[in-house]
Design a protein around this nucleic acid. Structure first.
Length: 338
DNA sequence: AACAGTCTCAACCGCCTCGAG
DNA sequence: TCTCGAGGCGGTTGAGACTGT
């Protein structure tokens, strides 16, 4: 394909946008709507190329963009979807309402990726960096002050397991409950103390999904073969997911579900390849075109004590529904816009 | 206080996809 | 069927903020 020269013209401005420029763009889009980006600069009185205007709008000015720290749940979803989709930022961002692909990408590159590496996980394959030596995957830079984590709780890495997820769950599971007076907790998967303290029903579910990698592997493999019944029909997550996020993890319970993740027969990379092909086909055939929120997922509530048995259904559901979106508690927050 | 090194993320670049004609 | 162009996407950059010495 011949190279098309975009955004090249006399006097076109580059670099950071000024408040005045933002106001012009917002005002124009407010009056005329989105689209026709090539003509917008001239009509809006901006010395920018249309592409720059579109990016500025979609990544920054759009009113329904949520900015700021990513929640723990959002991080978990990013990691899970990255494990299955790779660097498909727009796809991942579609699962996180009000987050842009650019923001997700930046967050991955500056935070999550680094933390995975620091903990001995290859951010590309989501497997231990040295698969031939599972022991090496034990966090090499585990500089959290919490020295109380017993050695026997170290994850036994499977060479074929998406390791990043179990690591999260394991870390989460060994931290004592936080005090009830705890308020704002810095988000950040594997982020030392504060990360351990953050918990919610969602986190519990995600953690258990991760910790039960073997079950996921089996279920998803089953899904690939097309033998899985509709996950939505048995999904238990939505109810739990929508609950307020202050449930505490029962340490012993979670720990017991976090350790056994050795699945020698499970070839995750191979699974992903199949899954992505499968999923893309489904998308192309118009599977589900509308965005789904947790609250939209048909739910049959299952006793939380027996949640593990059904969690695989949710993991399958999440991966089977590219348009599924996590609806966070913060969504109702009003955005300070300009 | 000053400087250097590091980190963050908005913005840019260039290729790709897809629909219109 | 082919061409063209708008919009989308992922990778990369660099200015400013932050941190350590």
């Amino acid at each position: 394909m011949s190279k098309r020269l975009c955004c090249i013209g006399e006097g076109l401005k580059k670099g950071a946008w000024t408040i005045e420029e933002d106001k012009k763009l917002i005002s124009y889009i407010h009056d005329h709507g989105e689209g026709g980006w090539r003509d917008i600069p001239e009509k809006a009185g901006l010395k920018r190329c249309g592409k720059s205007c579109r990016l500025r709008w979609t990544n920054y000015l759009k009113p329904d963009i949520k900015r700021g720290e990513f929640s723990y749940e959002e991080e978990q979803i990013i990691i899970m979807l990255h494990a299955s989709r790779g660097n498909k930022w727009s796809t991942i961002a579609r699962h996180l309402p009000k987050r842009t692909d650019n923001e997700v990408k930046n967050y991955w590159n500056t935070h999550l990726k680094k933390r995975l590496i620091d903990n001995g996980i290859d951010p590309v394959t989501h497997k231990p960096l040295d698969s031939s030596n599972p022991g090496s995957a034990v966090p090499k830079k585990f500089d959290c002050q919490d020295k109380s984590i017993p050695d026997e709780h170290s994850v036994q890495w499977s060479s074929t397991t998406p390791a990043s997820l179990p690591l999260s769950s394991t870390f989460n599971s060994v931290k004592p409950k936080i005090s009830s007076g705890e308020t704002q907790i810095e988000s950040g998967f594997l982020r030392c103390k504060k990360r351990f303290e953050r918990s919610s029903s969602t986190s519990r579910l995600l953690n258990k999904v991760a910790a039960r990698a073997s079950s996921i592997g089996n279920i998803l493999s089953t899904s690939i073969e097309g033998t899985l019944s509709s996950p939505a029909s048995s999904s238990c997550l939505p109810d739990s997911f929508s609950q307020s996020s202050e449930h505490m993890i029962d340490n012993k319970e979670d720990l017991s579900t976090s350790i056994d993740i050795n699945i020698p027969e499970y070839d995750f990379p191979q699974f992903l390849e199949q899954f992505i092909n499968d999923d893309d086909e489904a998308e192309n055939t118009g599977g589900s075109n509308q965005d789904l929120l947790m609250s939209d997922v048909p739910s049959t509530f299952v006793d939380e004590d027996d949640i593990i048995g059904d969690i695989t259904s949710w993991s399958t559901y999440l991966l089977d529904h590219p348009n599924f979106m996590y609806k966070s508690d913060q969504d109702s927050e009003e955005k300070n816009f300009l």
